[in-house]
Amino acid sequence: MSPTHGTFSETNSAEVVSARHAACTNPRLAEVMSALIRHLHDFAKEVHLSQDEWGLAVDFLTRTGQICSGQRQEFILLSDVLGVSMLVDAINNRRPEGATENTVFGPFHVADAPERQMGDNICLDGKGESCLFEGRVLDLEGQPIQGATVDVWSDNADGFYDVQQLGIQPPGNNRGVFVTGADGRYAFIGIKPVSYPIPDDGPVGQMLAQLGRHPYRPAHMHYLVTAPGFQRLVTHTFVGGDSYLTSDAVFGVKASLVAPYTRLHDQPTQWHAPFDFVLAPL
């Protein structure tokens, strides 16, 4: 008897289930589903999964879906804290040596951030320690890229993004889009970012607590850098010395993205954070 019509058993469970997809006309879907079934069944066998444990898992996934809304995506949060988001990002953003590394996009980017003049202050609520962010957008040969769009965003001094505090923070607070000139330079004034917890009042936060894990992300500034003829770069610069650098709740830290934040004295800003971005060609 073929596996397609075979009798299900503990030994051949994955093979029997996958064989039922023989009529699937989408080769990639068949490949992905067969691998998912194989690994899921192997997992259940390896840990001798009990019916109560599987029921708990189904309840967890149900509650994860129920808390999702237009403003909150708990499943993305689950993917983040399990390291899956960073793994998928790494697989899909392999770059040549010398190019700036990618990291997770995060849920707080907005598509219509205001375009600002080079050197503008993006902090609109007056909170936090001021910081000058500047550097260049370069190609792999070290040549400046003209016309690169540098889209930036960060939390405020209280650890919240503007979209988390509608009506409290000014719209567009700690956000801005800058376009480089012939020298490839960008510059803006923001605040030194602060570390903050991911939303931990739902099922994912409960899971982290049960695992003895904290929900914090180290302080960082977000960047989305694009230019014609070059790969899209989604990245952060992290504040050197942050206590959560080695335990980021979403595994987003890469050593090459830890930036120097230098304390300034008798200067217009309290901090200086230089960082050059190197784009890989398409």
Rank of each mutant, 00 (worst) to 15 (best):
S243Q: 15
S9D: 06
I191R: 02
M86H: 04
A19F: 00
L208I: 04
G83I: 05
N156A: 08
F133M: 08
C68I: 02
Q267V: 10
V137R: 01
A44Y: 00
V250T: 05
N93R: 11
N156E: 10
R213P: 00
T226M: 14
M1D: 10
H265C: 15
S79M: 12
G212L: 07
S69G: 07
F133L: 07
P281W: 00
P199Q: 05
N156H: 11
T103D: 08
I189K: 14
R175K: 15
T25W: 04
G241T: 14
S69P: 00
M207K: 06
S69Y: 02
L211I: 09
P228L: 05
L233K: 00
V16D: 02
V58R: 03
V47L: 09
N121E: 07
E31M: 10
P170T: 07
A30V: 04
G83D: 04
I198D: 01
I189P: 02
Y186E: 06
A99Q: 02
V225I: 15
P170D: 09
V152F: 03
G167C: 04
E97M: 13
H5F: 06
H109T: 12
P268A: 15
P107T: 12
R28A: 11
M1G: 12
G128M: 01
F275T: 10
T7K: 09
F160L: 08
D162A: 12
A259S: 15
F108E: 04
R94D: 11
P215E: 08
L77F: 04
S9A: 13
G184K: 02
A44H: 00
S79G: 07
F188E: 00
I91V: 13
T25A: 10
V253Q: 00
Q210P: 01
R94L: 11
F60M: 10
V81Q: 05
D89H: 07
L124T: 08
E53S: 14
L124R: 14
A14Y: 02
I145H: 02
V278E: 04
C24D: 12
P218T: 10
L49R: 09
F133I: 11
V204M: 03
E46D: 11
V204Y: 02
F230L: 07
D183L: 14
T226F: 09
E46P: 00
G6P: 02
D200E: 10
H39V: 08
A259T: 14
P114E: 12
A273V: 15
P281G: 12
A148M: 14
Q164K: 08
G181P: 03
P107G: 09
A44C: 06
G135W: 08
K254I: 01
Q165W: 03
S243E: 15
E46T: 12
P171E: 13
A57F: 10
M207D: 01
R217Q: 11
Y186I: 10
P193E: 04
